[in-house]
Design a protein around this nucleic acid. Sequence first.
DNA 1: CCGCGTCAAGTTCAT
DNA 2: ATGAACTTGACGCGG
Length: 298
Amino acid sequence: MRIGYACLTVGVPDTAIKSCLVKNASGTRLRNLISHNLNSLENIISYNGKNNIGLFRISSGLIPFASHPINQIPWWEIYKNEFLQIGQKIKANNIRVSMHPGQYTVLNSPFDEVVARALADLEYHSLVLDSLGVGADHKIILHIGGVYNNKKTAMKRFIINFKRVSDSVKRRIVIENDDKSYNIKDVLEIASDLKIPVVFDKLHNDINPADKRKSAIDWIKVCRKTWRQKDGIQKIHYSQQHPDKKTGSHSESINLDEFYEFYGSLKRKDIDIMFEVKDKNISALNCLDYIKQKKSRD
DNA sequence: CCGCGTCAAGTTCAT
DNA sequence: ATGAACTTGACGCGG
């Protein structure tokens, strides 16, 4: 089992991912930002390696405005060596990385311009992972998108538009249940058609359950079947509800006992768990420590 | 130098 | 019809 966190670190020097406003995105500015961000990424990977954090989500902001026409920099060529060097470090430390396009990447939109931008954005994400030289078990996690008052049609459109992505995106893509529209059952249905893996998101399923009689553990077992050998071991998302904020907001940190209970109920420990939590690496470290302590007491 | 309004993008929901 | 929320911070203008 590996535990990981998303996009950024707390309290680790020289690891910030920077950006700028689009109106300031000159070629020089973008090159400086990319160069800076790659250096930050390398520092994050070093930190993760040193601390046995085996899972990490790379920020989509690594290359600012990567799929926007303002950015015409052939970054994958210019920084080829930097990417390969970081990729070596990822492999040397047995780290599994991933990426996760945000809410604006909507593959199932009825508007073709929106779909075109989503396709470009997916190609960007896979180009980052390809440039690192990491295998197909380093995934791109995607939500299904909008419903547009007709879920069946919208799901069909996702399946149709999926056929438009390149093979290098196809081999990496994984779909995830969300907190509002597409529950785990919907996502499994699409995944079965496309033969792609499913990331089970526990908090999203708590909020937007497909079947209240089924537990998270039940769904994790079903989702396991969608992960083939070449996809690497099964991955899930784990987060806890912030006590005061609205439904779906992530907690500041992971409650260790609550997590340990969940961890204990997992039938199989050959699973990767991505935390979505405000304090990022801090909670990842705390949980790793906690599990270690508990084990040494047995 | 500091504070706060604004930021590429899409969809949904509240008003 | 219009605007805010979303995950939520960080950029950068204006004082």
